[in-house]
Amino acid sequence: MTATTATTPIVEMRNIKKSFGAVQALRGVDLTLMHNEVLGLVGDNAAGKSTLMKVLSGAYIPDEGEIYLEGKRVHITGPDDARRLGIEMVYQDFMLANNLDVAANIFLGREVVRWALGPIRVMDKRAMEIQSQQLLRRLNINVSSVRLKVEHLSGGQRQAVAIGRATAFNAKVIIMDEPTAALSVSAIGQVLDLIRELKAQGASIIIISHRLEDIHEVGDRVVVLRHGRKVADYPVTGDVQSFRERVVSYMVGARDDFSKVVAEED
């Protein structure tokens, strides 16, 4: 078991292609995510990073390419499929129902049912509250009560709840789409702490971010996309300044580690 989990990537995407009309958003991208790895996915606007993650989370169906989860070929045809396979998504704008409390949001769409009479399914609120409390405590998320409505939380707390929700149901892979973009500086710190905590507890995470310092702080490896192709894939090392300069040089097209591969294909 340990031998296979150490060598088999938890996610492997091979030669993913996706076009929208005449626009080729993804031109054959390979991407791997290892167990317990935090992967930063970066690139300029329209580089294809969100499209690639939407393929993985089931929002888009690729024109070509294969996806393997723990070595097994999977066919993801919708968000429900992805969730069932253990792929969870965290969004920039949290995607929480502000009128509901924290526990209700964590269990939204997956409510614990106490008893059911046909379509009438009565919820077990107590169980959901207790489990939510345990989840928040385990992740060190600072919310005074799970009965608090989300509209009364700060931005950082909301994103923490959204991330907590993504991890609540034994997720194998957590995709975070710009998790810090809508947050204040102190809230960004909270979310980065949470990502570190998740990694310490064994999670495998892909983070899309424009904030390279975030990737540098919590990421193990970085993948750079440009014009729908992967142009760089290497471990995060060194100080922030040199990391940033190197990533930017790939983003703007000054460097490209995979151009030969394309030349061969063409």
Partner: peptide
Amino acid sequence: LFLSRTVTGRHIYAVGGNEEAARVSGI
């Protein structure tokens, strides 16, 4: 009781609170 205690009742509130969030939550 239906609105406050059942799954469908909660989903009614969720759809009104944030329809997109409800959708991506599998509702």
